Computed example of a mutant assay.
Amino acid sequence: MNPTPSLARRSLLALALAGVCGGALAQDGASGATATPGWPSKTVRLVVGFPAGSSPDLTARLFAEPLSRALGQSVIVDNKVGAGGNIGAAQVARSHDDHTIGLFINGNLTIAKLLNPQVAYDPHKDLAPLSLIGVSPLVLTVPAHQTGVPADAAAFLQAARQAGDTWSYGTPGVGTVGHLGMELLKARAGINPLHIPYPGYPQVATAMLGDQLQMALLPPTLAQSQEDAGKLRRLGVTSSGRSALAPGVPSLAELGVKDFELEIWNAFAAPVSMPAAVRQRLSELTGEIARRPEVRAQLLQQGWQAVGSSAEGLAQRIARDTATMGRVIREQRISAQ
Protein backbone atom coordinates (compact mmCIF):
# COMPACT_ATOMS: atom_id res chain seq x y z
CA MET A 1 0.00 0.00 0.00
CA ASN A 2 1.08 3.50 -0.68
CA PRO A 3 1.73 5.13 2.75
CA THR A 4 1.00 8.62 1.35
CA PRO A 5 -2.57 9.67 2.12
CA SER A 6 -4.87 10.17 -0.81
CA LEU A 7 -5.98 13.68 -1.75
CA ALA A 8 -9.33 13.08 -0.09
CA ARG A 9 -7.70 11.82 3.10
CA ARG A 10 -5.28 14.73 3.14
CA SER A 11 -8.22 17.12 2.78
CA LEU A 12 -10.08 15.50 5.65
CA LEU A 13 -6.95 15.60 7.80
CA ALA A 14 -6.44 19.30 7.02
CA LEU A 15 -10.03 20.08 7.92
CA ALA A 16 -9.73 18.17 11.19
CA LEU A 17 -6.53 19.98 12.11
CA ALA A 18 -8.09 23.30 11.19
CA GLY A 19 -11.04 22.56 13.46
CA VAL A 20 -8.80 21.67 16.38
CA CYS A 21 -6.58 24.70 15.89
CA GLY A 22 -9.56 26.96 15.38
CA GLY A 23 -11.13 25.72 18.59
CA ALA A 24 -7.89 26.24 20.47
CA LEU A 25 -7.52 29.74 19.08
CA ALA A 26 -11.12 30.54 19.99
CA GLN A 27 -10.50 29.34 23.54
CA ASP A 28 -7.29 31.32 23.78
CA GLY A 29 -9.03 34.40 22.41
CA ALA A 30 -11.80 34.10 25.01
CA SER A 31 -9.31 33.76 27.86
CA GLY A 32 -6.85 36.28 26.49
CA ALA A 33 -3.98 33.79 26.92
CA THR A 34 -2.45 34.36 23.50
CA ALA A 35 -4.45 37.30 22.16
CA THR A 36 -2.69 39.84 24.43
CA PRO A 37 0.79 38.53 25.37
CA GLY A 38 2.42 40.68 28.03
CA TRP A 39 -0.74 42.66 28.73
CA PRO A 40 -1.63 43.92 31.25
CA SER A 41 1.83 44.79 32.52
CA LYS A 42 0.66 47.23 35.20
CA THR A 43 -2.42 48.46 37.06
CA VAL A 44 -5.49 49.03 34.89
CA ARG A 45 -7.21 52.37 35.48
CA LEU A 46 -11.02 52.44 35.27
CA VAL A 47 -12.10 56.07 34.88
CA VAL A 48 -15.56 57.20 36.03
CA GLY A 49 -16.69 60.76 35.36
CA PHE A 50 -18.93 60.89 38.43
CA PRO A 51 -18.34 61.05 42.19
CA ALA A 52 -17.92 58.16 44.59
CA GLY A 53 -21.27 56.65 45.51
CA SER A 54 -22.94 57.65 42.25
CA SER A 55 -24.60 55.01 40.10
CA PRO A 56 -21.73 54.83 37.55
CA ASP A 57 -19.21 54.63 40.38
CA LEU A 58 -21.06 51.74 42.05
CA THR A 59 -21.19 49.84 38.75
CA ALA A 60 -17.49 50.42 38.10
CA ARG A 61 -16.57 49.13 41.55
CA LEU A 62 -18.77 46.08 41.01
CA PHE A 63 -16.60 45.20 37.99
CA ALA A 64 -13.18 46.17 39.35
CA GLU A 65 -12.59 43.05 41.47
CA PRO A 66 -13.66 40.39 38.92
CA LEU A 67 -11.71 42.23 36.21
CA SER A 68 -8.65 42.27 38.45
CA ARG A 69 -8.93 38.52 39.07
CA ALA A 70 -9.35 37.77 35.37
CA LEU A 71 -6.44 40.01 34.31
CA GLY A 72 -4.04 39.17 37.12
CA GLN A 73 -3.44 42.88 37.77
CA SER A 74 -4.95 45.50 40.03
CA VAL A 75 -7.90 47.47 38.64
CA ILE A 76 -8.46 50.83 40.32
CA VAL A 77 -11.47 53.13 39.95
CA ASP A 78 -10.40 56.70 39.24
CA ASN A 79 -13.15 59.33 39.66
CA LYS A 80 -12.64 62.29 37.31
CA VAL A 81 -15.72 64.35 38.08
CA GLY A 82 -17.30 67.13 36.07
CA ALA A 83 -19.32 68.24 33.06
CA GLY A 84 -21.78 65.37 33.32
CA GLY A 85 -19.05 62.77 32.93
CA ASN A 86 -17.43 64.44 29.93
CA ILE A 87 -14.21 65.33 31.79
CA GLY A 88 -13.63 61.66 32.54
CA ALA A 89 -14.56 60.69 28.99
CA ALA A 90 -12.02 63.16 27.59
CA GLN A 91 -9.30 61.72 29.83
CA VAL A 92 -9.99 58.22 28.56
CA ALA A 93 -10.05 59.42 24.96
CA ARG A 94 -6.63 61.07 25.37
CA SER A 95 -5.02 58.12 27.14
CA HIS A 96 -2.26 56.26 25.28
CA ASP A 97 -0.95 53.93 27.99
CA ASP A 98 -3.07 50.92 26.87
CA HIS A 99 -4.15 50.44 30.50
CA THR A 100 -7.01 52.96 30.80
CA ILE A 101 -10.69 52.32 30.12
CA GLY A 102 -13.87 54.10 31.19
CA LEU A 103 -17.39 53.41 32.37
CA PHE A 104 -19.77 55.90 30.76
CA ILE A 105 -23.42 56.81 30.79
CA ASN A 106 -25.15 57.00 27.41
CA GLY A 107 -25.04 60.80 27.38
CA ASN A 108 -21.24 60.73 27.14
CA LEU A 109 -21.32 58.42 24.12
CA THR A 110 -24.32 59.84 22.27
CA ILE A 111 -25.53 63.29 23.34
CA ALA A 112 -22.45 65.27 24.44
CA LYS A 113 -21.02 66.15 21.03
CA LEU A 114 -24.47 66.77 19.54
CA LEU A 115 -25.25 69.44 22.12
CA ASN A 116 -21.82 71.00 22.32
CA PRO A 117 -19.38 70.66 19.41
CA GLN A 118 -16.67 72.09 21.69
CA VAL A 119 -16.62 68.99 23.91
CA ALA A 120 -12.98 67.90 24.18
CA TYR A 121 -13.49 64.47 22.60
CA ASP A 122 -15.48 62.84 19.83
CA PRO A 123 -17.20 59.68 21.10
CA HIS A 124 -17.35 58.21 17.60
CA LYS A 125 -13.71 58.87 16.70
CA ASP A 126 -11.83 58.83 20.00
CA LEU A 127 -13.54 56.03 21.95
CA ALA A 128 -13.96 52.37 21.04
CA PRO A 129 -17.04 50.50 22.36
CA LEU A 130 -16.40 47.50 24.63
CA SER A 131 -19.72 46.35 26.12
CA LEU A 132 -23.19 47.64 26.95
CA ILE A 133 -23.56 46.74 30.63
CA GLY A 134 -27.02 47.73 31.87
CA VAL A 135 -30.16 49.47 30.66
CA SER A 136 -33.09 51.08 32.43
CA PRO A 137 -36.22 52.93 31.35
CA LEU A 138 -37.32 56.18 32.86
CA VAL A 139 -40.83 56.45 34.29
CA LEU A 140 -43.37 59.16 33.47
CA THR A 141 -44.32 60.25 36.97
CA VAL A 142 -46.96 62.75 38.11
CA PRO A 143 -48.17 64.12 41.46
CA ALA A 144 -50.64 61.84 43.19
CA HIS A 145 -52.69 64.63 44.74
CA GLN A 146 -52.23 67.88 42.78
CA THR A 147 -55.36 69.83 41.92
CA GLY A 148 -56.15 69.63 38.21
CA VAL A 149 -53.57 66.92 37.49
CA PRO A 150 -55.31 63.57 36.86
CA ALA A 151 -53.54 60.44 38.09
CA ASP A 152 -55.13 58.32 35.34
CA ALA A 153 -52.84 58.04 32.31
CA ALA A 154 -55.33 58.77 29.54
CA ALA A 155 -56.92 61.65 31.45
CA PHE A 156 -53.49 63.03 32.32
CA LEU A 157 -52.29 63.14 28.72
CA GLN A 158 -55.51 64.82 27.63
CA ALA A 159 -55.22 67.40 30.42
CA ALA A 160 -51.58 67.99 29.48
CA ARG A 161 -52.56 68.74 25.88
CA GLN A 162 -55.12 71.26 27.06
CA ALA A 163 -52.72 72.85 29.57
CA GLY A 164 -50.03 73.63 26.98
CA ASP A 165 -47.09 75.53 28.46
CA THR A 166 -48.94 76.39 31.68
CA TRP A 167 -47.70 73.03 32.96
CA SER A 168 -44.04 72.31 33.67
CA TYR A 169 -41.72 69.33 33.81
CA GLY A 170 -38.40 68.96 35.62
CA THR A 171 -35.09 67.31 34.70
CA PRO A 172 -31.52 67.14 36.07
CA GLY A 173 -30.47 69.64 33.41
CA VAL A 174 -30.35 70.62 29.76
CA GLY A 175 -29.19 67.82 27.49
CA THR A 176 -29.73 65.01 29.98
CA VAL A 177 -31.61 61.91 28.87
CA GLY A 178 -34.52 63.01 31.05
CA HIS A 179 -34.65 66.32 29.20
CA LEU A 180 -34.35 64.93 25.69
CA GLY A 181 -36.72 62.11 26.53
CA MET A 182 -39.40 64.55 27.64
CA GLU A 183 -38.85 66.65 24.51
CA LEU A 184 -39.36 63.48 22.48
CA LEU A 185 -42.50 62.74 24.48
CA LYS A 186 -43.79 66.26 23.78
CA ALA A 187 -43.44 65.64 20.07
CA ARG A 188 -44.99 62.17 20.17
CA ALA A 189 -47.85 62.89 22.60
CA GLY A 190 -48.77 66.39 21.44
CA ILE A 191 -48.09 68.07 24.78
CA ASN A 192 -46.09 71.23 25.47
CA PRO A 193 -45.01 71.60 29.13
CA LEU A 194 -42.28 74.10 30.05
CA HIS A 195 -38.83 72.73 30.94
CA ILE A 196 -37.39 73.60 34.37
CA PRO A 197 -33.91 72.19 35.13
CA TYR A 198 -32.84 71.13 38.64
CA PRO A 199 -29.54 69.90 40.14
CA GLY A 200 -30.72 66.28 40.18
CA TYR A 201 -33.62 63.84 40.19
CA PRO A 202 -34.28 64.07 43.96
CA GLN A 203 -34.84 67.81 43.60
CA VAL A 204 -37.21 67.18 40.68
CA ALA A 205 -39.27 64.82 42.83
CA THR A 206 -39.33 67.35 45.68
CA ALA A 207 -40.55 70.06 43.29
CA MET A 208 -43.42 67.83 42.19
CA LEU A 209 -44.34 67.21 45.81
CA GLY A 210 -44.42 70.98 46.29
CA ASP A 211 -46.84 71.45 43.36
CA GLN A 212 -44.18 73.27 41.32
CA LEU A 213 -44.17 70.65 38.53
CA GLN A 214 -46.80 68.51 36.89
CA MET A 215 -44.60 65.73 35.46
CA ALA A 216 -41.13 64.28 35.04
CA LEU A 217 -39.30 61.25 33.75
CA LEU A 218 -37.75 59.71 36.86
CA PRO A 219 -35.52 56.67 37.47
CA PRO A 220 -37.60 53.60 38.40
CA THR A 221 -36.39 53.24 42.00
CA LEU A 222 -37.09 56.88 42.86
CA ALA A 223 -40.48 56.81 41.15
CA GLN A 224 -41.52 53.62 42.95
CA SER A 225 -40.41 54.82 46.39
CA GLN A 226 -42.47 57.98 45.98
CA GLU A 227 -45.50 56.03 44.75
CA ASP A 228 -45.16 53.61 47.66
CA ALA A 229 -45.27 56.64 49.96
CA GLY A 230 -48.48 57.78 48.25
CA LYS A 231 -46.91 61.01 46.99
CA LEU A 232 -46.36 60.41 43.27
CA ARG A 233 -47.93 58.13 40.68
CA ARG A 234 -46.18 56.19 37.93
CA LEU A 235 -48.02 56.31 34.59
CA GLY A 236 -45.75 54.60 32.05
CA VAL A 237 -42.21 53.42 31.33
CA THR A 238 -40.21 54.73 28.40
CA SER A 239 -38.93 51.36 27.19
CA SER A 240 -40.55 49.65 24.20
CA GLY A 241 -42.26 47.15 26.51
CA ARG A 242 -42.78 46.65 30.23
CA SER A 243 -39.72 46.53 32.46
CA ALA A 244 -38.77 44.33 35.40
CA LEU A 245 -37.47 47.52 37.02
CA ALA A 246 -41.02 48.94 37.19
CA PRO A 247 -43.34 45.99 37.81
CA GLY A 248 -46.94 46.54 36.82
CA VAL A 249 -46.32 49.80 34.97
CA PRO A 250 -47.38 49.85 31.29
CA SER A 251 -45.14 51.19 28.56
CA LEU A 252 -45.99 54.56 27.07
CA ALA A 253 -46.59 52.70 23.80
CA GLU A 254 -49.39 50.81 25.55
CA LEU A 255 -50.86 54.17 26.52
CA GLY A 256 -51.05 55.23 22.88
CA VAL A 257 -47.78 57.17 22.54
CA LYS A 258 -46.46 55.94 19.19
CA ASP A 259 -42.83 55.69 18.03
CA PHE A 260 -41.48 56.33 21.51
CA GLU A 261 -38.65 54.37 23.11
CA LEU A 262 -36.02 55.66 25.50
CA GLU A 263 -33.63 54.08 27.98
CA ILE A 264 -30.72 55.21 30.06
CA TRP A 265 -27.70 52.90 30.03
CA ASN A 266 -24.07 52.52 31.00
CA ALA A 267 -21.21 50.95 29.08
CA PHE A 268 -17.48 50.36 28.97
CA ALA A 269 -15.36 51.99 26.27
CA ALA A 270 -11.63 52.33 25.60
CA PRO A 271 -9.39 54.76 23.74
CA VAL A 272 -9.22 53.97 20.02
CA SER A 273 -5.43 53.97 20.45
CA MET A 274 -5.65 50.78 22.51
CA PRO A 275 -4.57 47.72 20.47
CA ALA A 276 -7.49 45.86 18.92
CA ALA A 277 -6.57 42.57 20.62
CA VAL A 278 -6.59 44.22 24.03
CA ARG A 279 -9.95 45.86 23.32
CA GLN A 280 -11.36 42.52 22.21
CA ARG A 281 -10.21 40.85 25.40
CA LEU A 282 -11.72 43.59 27.56
CA SER A 283 -14.95 43.48 25.57
CA GLU A 284 -15.28 39.74 26.15
CA LEU A 285 -14.39 40.01 29.84
CA THR A 286 -16.71 42.91 30.72
CA GLY A 287 -19.59 41.35 28.79
CA GLU A 288 -19.07 37.96 30.43
CA ILE A 289 -18.88 39.49 33.92
CA ALA A 290 -22.13 41.42 33.34
CA ARG A 291 -23.89 38.17 32.43
CA ARG A 292 -22.84 36.29 35.59
CA PRO A 293 -25.91 35.57 37.75
CA GLU A 294 -24.47 37.20 40.86
CA VAL A 295 -23.50 40.33 38.95
CA ARG A 296 -26.88 40.49 37.20
CA ALA A 297 -28.52 40.40 40.63
CA GLN A 298 -26.31 43.21 41.94
CA LEU A 299 -26.92 45.31 38.84
CA LEU A 300 -30.67 44.84 39.33
CA GLN A 301 -30.30 46.11 42.90
CA GLN A 302 -28.51 49.16 41.48
CA GLY A 303 -31.41 49.75 39.07
CA TRP A 304 -30.07 48.14 35.90
CA GLN A 305 -31.18 45.27 33.71
CA ALA A 306 -27.93 43.53 32.78
CA VAL A 307 -26.99 43.18 29.11
CA GLY A 308 -23.29 42.37 28.65
CA SER A 309 -23.23 42.95 24.89
CA SER A 310 -20.44 42.57 22.38
CA ALA A 311 -18.51 45.60 21.18
CA GLU A 312 -20.54 45.46 17.97
CA GLY A 313 -23.79 45.42 19.93
CA LEU A 314 -22.77 48.53 21.86
CA ALA A 315 -21.67 50.27 18.65
CA GLN A 316 -25.10 49.62 17.14
CA ARG A 317 -26.83 50.98 20.24
CA ILE A 318 -24.67 54.12 20.18
CA ALA A 319 -25.48 54.71 16.50
CA ARG A 320 -29.22 54.19 17.00
CA ASP A 321 -29.51 56.42 20.07
CA THR A 322 -27.30 59.11 18.54
CA ALA A 323 -29.62 59.26 15.55
CA THR A 324 -32.73 59.46 17.77
CA MET A 325 -31.31 62.09 20.11
CA GLY A 326 -29.88 64.07 17.20
CA ARG A 327 -33.32 64.25 15.63
CA VAL A 328 -34.85 65.47 18.91
CA ILE A 329 -32.15 68.11 19.34
CA ARG A 330 -32.67 69.41 15.80
CA GLU A 331 -36.46 69.32 15.83
CA GLN A 332 -36.78 70.94 19.27
CA ARG A 333 -33.85 73.32 18.66
CA ILE A 334 -32.08 72.36 21.88
CA SER A 335 -28.66 73.77 22.73
CA ALA A 336 -26.32 73.41 25.67
CA GLN A 337 -26.68 77.10 26.56
Rank of each mutant, 00 (worst) to 15 (best):
N2T: 14
T4C: 00
L7W: 13
L17K: 00
C21N: 04
C21R: 04
G22I: 05
T36Q: 04
T36A: 15
G38T: 15
W39H: 08
P40G: 10
G49Y: 12
S54T: 11
S55K: 11
P56F: 01
L58T: 03
F63T: 04
E65I: 10
P66R: 13
P66H: 12
L71H: 08
Q73K: 14
V77Y: 02
D78A: 05
N86C: 03
N86Y: 00
Q91T: 11
V92R: 00
A93V: 11
H96P: 02
T100C: 01
G102C: 04
L103E: 01
N108L: 03
P117F: 08
V119A: 12
V119K: 02
A120H: 09
Y121N: 08
D122M: 02
S136K: 12
V139G: 01
T141D: 10
P143M: 03
H145L: 09
P150I: 04
A151L: 02
Q158L: 13
Q162D: 13
A163W: 10
T166M: 03
T176D: 01
G178F: 02
L184K: 10
A187C: 01
I191M: 11
I191N: 07
L194E: 14
L194H: 14
I196T: 13
P197N: 03
Y198M: 06
A205Y: 10
Q214T: 12
K231H: 15
S243I: 00
A246P: 02
S251D: 07
E263N: 15
I264L: 07
P271M: 05
A276P: 00
A276C: 00
R296T: 11
Q298P: 01
W304S: 02
S310W: 10
Q316I: 05
I318F: 03
V328I: 15
R333Q: 15
